[in-house]
Design a protein around this nucleic acid. Structure first.
Lengths: 275, 275
DNA sequence: CAGTGGTCTAGACCACACT
DNA sequence: GTGTGGTCTAGACCACTGC
């Protein structure tokens, strides 16, 4: 009997619990039908958003969750399976289920699809990062729209260059990135804090600001750099670059970062897998 | 008791069937442990590859498959769920499970991620296609490697231009593509056949040559066009373009197409979603 | 050893499509 | 109504982890 939760539909059979049960959460007479496991998924998601369990932490076992929501373990399992499929949670047999993190080795740089042309082997170590700028400013119309803010709202603006070692070992500046972040959640961000942090930017956002990026969308174009960009990337004018505009989202599909990257593609390429 | 199949592990309990059962498929003493549903998935995959059910056709119901493999419906369900997740099969409630196709509306142009800058709405109708070339030739070292052939093997080579209507309605050449296909499976391919066919190339491959593309990998770079390419795309020299090199695979991870596309990104962009 | 996630089963019932 | 996939349950057992 998939129906409203929170009114303990635990009775094994008979006794349907549909209809507009007037309990704590007033709902308009069962909207369209949503399977129980979806509702459970939603509830777990809420706890995730609310920070009931922090990134990296263990969430309650399936049996506990089943008891808490008054459903069978199988139903909880299906809900958690979907959360794991969305990369919100990681299952580890024998240990438990953990809130996913951008810190873990195998999922680091999940959102960076630029790889060296020479085999994919092990990504030549974390890039050398150089922070050129990190300051407060105000969102123009375009930035505001991308971040669901209002024009003039406070934003943090960051500019950095990532360099990778070439064959010889010399560092080659390969990526020039500009980041825009909503001012409120990221108050206190400084170039120094970013430079000191070991690991991906998204891991820093997680551990220092409690903002977990869940998914992202990219728009990719081929462009020519201006003089500034040429200098920063040590390239000749007229060198075509990949322009990668990314919007990253937290829970609730709330946009929390706009990032504009310029990628050199003479030694690297953007790798994508289609299914 | 997950163990070797094909020796009917149907007995409800007790009577383990592990160990190196010497039956039709000689296997080295149970390699590492593979759950039953994975083995079922493998068997269904074999039938798919063998063409037991053609693209678009209905496959046996879960109950029939369960009987056939002597497992419970739940186990078949999990196997089919994975196949559906891999886009090899499509479930339709109340009707059955069908072999996936590149012809269906909602999954057409699955592998083409170039979209118009102006909203994504409905993709401005199928592109106008212009076939400039379709001839037999021999694979050079590079093409051979990509297609898992030997240098000098026969290949089909195709060149075409795709044009999309601009705001005014005038057709703008936007994509220049070169395709290389292994000669044997695609014997008889002509420019005329391609021009006559309504729908995506991959649908043609499926219906006319029995080759179903299952996944693909792309390497993306920013490049400058040569004079030839400028003429074909009606662009000025120095206009940066997206270079998209795609290898498409059938079942068994066998590469069956190498495609090199040049995309104009002044009115369109490459759209990617990251999870 | 106990606790966790992972697999497998069997049966009941629901939602949907066809006829 | 019949048949299909979809949901939900309850219970048994397996595989892995750590005490």
């Amino acid at each position: 009997m998939p129906s409203s939760l929170s009114t303990a539909p635990g009775l094994p059979s008979g006794s349907t619990v549909s209809g507009p049960s007037s309990d704590t959460t007033a709902s308009p007479a069962t909207p369209a039908f949503s399977p129980l496991y979806q509702q459970i998924k939603g509830l777990i998601l809420q706890s995730l958003q609310a920070g009931e369990w922090k990134p990296g932490e263990l969430i309650p076992s399936e049996i506990e969750l089943a008891a808490r929501f008054r459903v069978s373990q199988g139903t909880v399992r299906k809900a958690v399976d979907e959360l794991a499929g969305d990369n919100l949670v990681v299952r580890r047999q024998g240990k438990g289920t953990f809130v996913a993190t951008h810190t873990e080795q195998h999922v680091r740089y999940r959102f960076l699809k630029l790889v060296p042309d020479t085999g994919d082997v092990d990504r030549e170590g974390p890039a050398q990062r150089q922070f050129l700028e990190c300051r407060r400013s105000r969102a123009n119309a375009e930035i505001a729209r991308a971040l669901a803010l209002r024009t003039g709202d406070a934003v943090m603006q960051v500019r950095r260059v990532l360099s990778f070692p070439a064959d010889g070992g010399a560092l080659v500046p390969t990526i020039l990135e500009d980041l825009w972040l909503p001012g409120a959640p990221f108050k206190g961000l400084t170039a120094e804090r970013m430079a000191d942090f070991r690991g991906p930017t998204y891991a820093l956002f997680e551990t220092e600001f409690g903002v977990r990026m869940v998914r992202a969308e990219e728009k990719i174009r081929a462009v020519l750099p201006d003089d500034d960009q040429c200098k920063l990337l040590h390239i000749a004018p007229g060198t075509p670059l990949l322009s990668v505009e990314r919007v990253a989202y937290t829970y609730n599909d709330a946009p929390m970062e706009l990032r504009r990257g310029l990628y050199r593609t003479d030694t690297h390429h953007y790798r994508n897998e289609l299914n």
